[in-house]
Amino acid sequence: MSESEGNASTEAIHAEQIHKRFGALEVLKGVNLSARKGDVVAIIGGSGSGKSTFLRCLNCLDHPTSGSLRINGEEVRFKPDGHGDLAPASRQQIRQLRSRLAMVFQNFNLWQHRTLLENMIEAPVHVLGVPRKQAIEEGKRLLDRVGLNDKHDAYPAFLSGGQQQRAAIARALAVDPLAMLFDEPTSALDPELVGEVLKVIQSLADEGRTMILVTHEMAFARDVATRVVFFHNGVVEEEGPPSEFFSNPQSERLQKFLSNFN
C-alpha cells in the first residue's frame, strides 16, 4: 500500500502553495497546510498576516492567485478568473464543497430576517435538499445542544453576541460538515461571553470534529488544538503540536509573538 493511498482516507483538507494577491499586495506567499480528519488546527498570527484570507481561500470565498486545494480527497478544479486569480472551474463542485465546509464568522452573520430555527434549516433545505421536516427536527436538536432551547423562534438581533455565535455554530453543524472553519469566533464578544462559546467549540473537538480555527485565545488553542500553526507575513512560519509549540517555540518571531500574550 502506497503512502498517498493511506493518506487519502484520513485527509480532510490539503492546501498546497496557496498564493493570494490583492492588487500589488501579496497577502499569501505560498501557504501549505493540511488537516487529517479529526484534527483541530489552530491558526495564530499577527493582524494582517493572512489568516482570514487563507480561511476564505479554503472555500473559495476569495479566489487564490495560485496553488492547489484538495478537500476530502477531491481536487478543487480551478480556471483563470480573468482578474489574475483562479476561479473554481465548476460552480457545482464549489457549491457542494462550500455546503459541507461550514464557516463560522467573527461577526456571526446569521440571517437577520429569519428566526434561529429558520437559520438552521436554510442551507440544509435549499442547498442540500434535505426534507424540511427532517431539517427542522435536526435544527431544533442542534439549537438545544448549544443551549438555546428557548430561543428557537427568536430573531438574531434580539440575542446576545454569545447566543448568536452559538446559534451560528449550530447552523454550521446543520450541514453535517466535513470540516468547520472558524475565523476568530470570539473576537467580537464581550469578555464574559467568550467562555460559553469556547465551551461549545471544545465539545465539538471532543467528539472528533475536523476544525480549522483562527484565534487569538492562546490558552484555548493550547487546550483544544491537535496542531498549532503560526502565520507570519503570508507564510507558515512555524507549526507543531501545542505542547512543543507553546513551550519551546523555535523561531524568533514566534517567541516574540507569544511573549505578547504573557
Binding site: 472555500n59 470565498l61 460552480r91 464549489i94 457549491r95 457542494q96 464543497l97 462550500r98 455546503s99 459541507r100 461550514a102 464557516m103 464568522f105 461577526n107 456571526f108 452573520n109 446569521l110 440571517w111 437577520q112 436554510e122 442551507a123 435549499h126 442547498v127 442540500l128 447552523r171 450541514v175
Partner: peptide, 14 residues
C-alpha cells in the same frame, strides 16, 4: 450588511 450575503455564499448558495 455584506456579511449576510457572504454567509449565503459560504453555505453554498448560488
Amino acid at each position: 450588511p455584506q456579511g449576510q450575503i457572504e454567509a449565503a455564499r459560504a453555505y453554498g448558495m448560488g
